[in-house]
Amino acid sequence: MKAFFDARQAAHDPKHFMANGALSPNPEQPERITRLHAGALAAGCAFETPLDAGIGPIAAVHTPQYLTFLQNIYTRWSRIEGAGEEVIPNVHPANRTDSYPLSAVGQAGYHQADTACPITADTYHAAYWSAQSAISGADYIAKTGKAAYALSRPPGHHAFGDMAGGFCFLNNSGIAAERLRVQGFRPAILDVDVHHGNGTQGMFYERSDVFTVSLHADPARFYPFFWGHAQERGQGLGLGYNLNLPLPRGTDDTTYLKTLDKAFESIEAFGCNALVVALGLDAHIEDPFQGLAITTTGFGQIGAAIAGLKLPTLFVQEGGYLSDALADNLTSTLTGFARA
């Protein structure tokens, strides 16, 4: 399988992560790249450096205001006397329609959903090349009709059109799907990360030309809490084009695969002819977030099941955090797909 990755993605090295009121090391570390790269190689992937398709494909789903913020906020933040070493907001608007402030602190609160997306001097450029990896992957499957893997890190599915969140800055899966759409495809995004892809949902929620479906741990008591519930079906033109399949904490391989069949039925009914898989490996039983209980073997079965759709398929890396099984989980997924 062809794979895409740019070494500049490793420059983003966040230090802070606040959860439940406690500050701890950020789990979205560059070491993830080393392990995921090894897992992809073990699955037979042949890596290429992505081409630079420019800002256009990114701006197709992210607002100019947000992209300007990402490009400039660290420099502006650094001018604040006594500011921390990373951009982390401490105030947020109640609504997206509230006033847009001039201050760096206020804009950080507007464009960063939570404290899990600290911005460093290297964040924008790392995220830019993460997105370019997904864009090159989309172009490859569009041209060949085959499958590809984008080692996109930092990940993307919690990034809205104008807001970062949950370790994510640019929505790589959404960017890839839009890239396929403008080339004449009818794409679907299948999100198998343990966390709901709230940014992806928000990006396409009022659209009918990209179908979004997510299997994830029930957000009633799990991040991202406010999105990912079964009743969220889309809005306006997008009504019926978003499908959430929340799962009880600790869901195992058997139940997960049965639920995946429901996702496939809707993907096929949409008339999908190109698939973007938002590939989170954090549903694994040993992942630090402990949401679901998928085994390494189970990931191979998931990969094989996706292959059964017989679609040009782009796997875009999302979550999956440091554990001894991380590389093996990626190898199992991609190998299961290839063998099927």
Rank of each mutant, 00 (worst) to 15 (best):
A283H: 01
E178P: 13
I189E: 05
D98F: 01
G84F: 06
E48G: 10
A293L: 01
K146N: 13
L215E: 01
E206C: 04
A274T: 11
R339N: 12
G161M: 11
G319S: 13
S266E: 15
T295Y: 02
F211A: 03
F299V: 00
A60L: 10
N273Y: 08
A283Y: 03
H157K: 11
G39A: 00
S78I: 04
R8S: 15
F47M: 01
L102T: 09
S130F: 14
S130R: 10
R181L: 11
R221F: 14
L330K: 04
D191G: 08
R79H: 15
I119K: 01
K15W: 03
F167I: 06
F4R: 04
G165N: 09
M18L: 14
A11Y: 12
G156L: 07
L190K: 09
I294V: 03
Y205V: 08
L247T: 14
D324S: 12
L51W: 03
Y149S: 08
S24C: 10
T123D: 13
H229I: 04
E318H: 03
H125S: 09
P118T: 10
R181W: 14
L245D: 02
I306S: 10
M1L: 12
S130V: 11
I294D: 00
A46T: 14
G174F: 13
L190Y: 06
L322D: 06
D328L: 02
A327H: 05
A164W: 12
G298R: 01
D122P: 04
I141Y: 15
F185K: 12
F222I: 10
P219E: 06
F264W: 08
R181H: 14
Q9K: 10
K15Y: 04
R179G: 09
S130M: 03
N329G: 00
T313H: 05
A3H: 04
D114V: 03
L237H: 15
G137Y: 10
A94P: 02
A278K: 02
Q9P: 06
G300K: 01
G236A: 11
N95D: 01
Q9V: 05
N242K: 11
G320W: 02
G184P: 07
A274E: 01
Q301R: 05
F17N: 01
A40D: 03
A176L: 13
A11I: 03
P248V: 02
A42D: 07
P118Q: 04
P64N: 11
L70F: 08
Q65T: 13
D218H: 12
A53F: 11
L326K: 07
P219F: 15
D252F: 03
L51R: 09
V316F: 05
A159R: 10
V210A: 09
N20K: 09
A278G: 12
P312W: 10
P14Y: 14
A305D: 08
A121T: 07
S24W: 14
A121V: 11
G174E: 13
T331A: 13
